[in-house]
Amino acid sequence: MNVLPRNPAARAAVRQGVSVSVATGLYGVSFGALSVAAGVGLGPTMALSLLMFSGGSQFALIGVIGAAGTPVAAIATATLLGLRNTLYGAVVSPLLQVRGWRRIAAAQVTIDESTAVAVAQPEPAASRIGFWVTGIGVYVLWNAFVLLGALAGDALGDPRAWGLDAAAAAAFLALVWPRLAPRRAQLVAGLAVAATAVLIPFVPPGIPVLAAAAVAIVVGLVAPAVPDDAPASPHAAAADQPENETDRESVR
C-alpha cells in the first residue's frame, strides 16, 4: 500500500510531517499525567488539549493552576505564550490559500510543528501537504496520548517519580534551544532567567513568566536593528535546517 503522493517534494513533506507528529504526539502522555496531577480533572484536561491545542500554553496553564495561581494569571500566561501562533498564522496563510471552515481548521492546527514543516518545503504544494499532515497528525496523536496520560496518571502514581516534571522542563529547554543562537536572544534569555528567579519567591505563580515577557518586549522595542540579529521568522529558522532538525524545532 503506497499512500504517499508521487511528487518527491510532497512525499518528503509527508514523511517529515509524520515523524514530527509521532515525536510530538508521544509527549502528550506527560501533559495528560501532569495535568491530572496538577488537579485539573480529566474533562478540563481534554478540553484544554482539544480546544487550546498549543503545548506551551497548555503546560503553562496547568503549571499556574498547579501552583495555586489565580485564573487571571493562568489565562494571561497561556495567552501570551500563544501569541507566536499569530505570527505563524500570518506566515502560513498565504501558502495555504484557504477560506471558510478550512481556514478555521487551519487556524486551530497552526502551531510550531506544522509551521516549521510547512515553511521548510521547497515548493508551495509540498508546504500545503506538509502543513496539513503535521497539523492533523499532531492534533490526533497529541490528543490521543494526552487522554492516555490522563487516564494512566492515577495508575502511574506521582509523576515526579517518573521524572515527568523534569521532562516538562527539558521540553521547554529543547524548544528554546534552537532560538538561542542570536546574541540578542541570549541577552534576553539571561535577563529572563534573572527576572524569573528573583520574582518567584515574592509574587504569585505565573507572574514571573509574564515579567520575563515584559523584559523581552522592552528589549525588542528599544534595541536598535542590527544585521546579525535578523528576526528568526519561521521561514528563516526552518529553511536552514535539515530534516532531523525539524524534530528538535517541534516545540509548541
Partner: peptide, 25 residues
C-alpha cells in the same frame, strides 16, 4: 517580528526556570 521572537525566547526560558527550579514559591 523582533519583539515576537524575543518574547517567545523569554517565555520559554522563564518556563525552564519555573519548571526546573521552583517548588511553589
Amino acid at each position: 517580528s523582533r519583539v515576537t521572537t524575543l518574547v517567545t525566547v523569554a517565555l520559554l526560558v522563564s518556563l525552564v526556570v519555573v519548571q526546573g527550579f521552583a517548588d511553589g514559591r
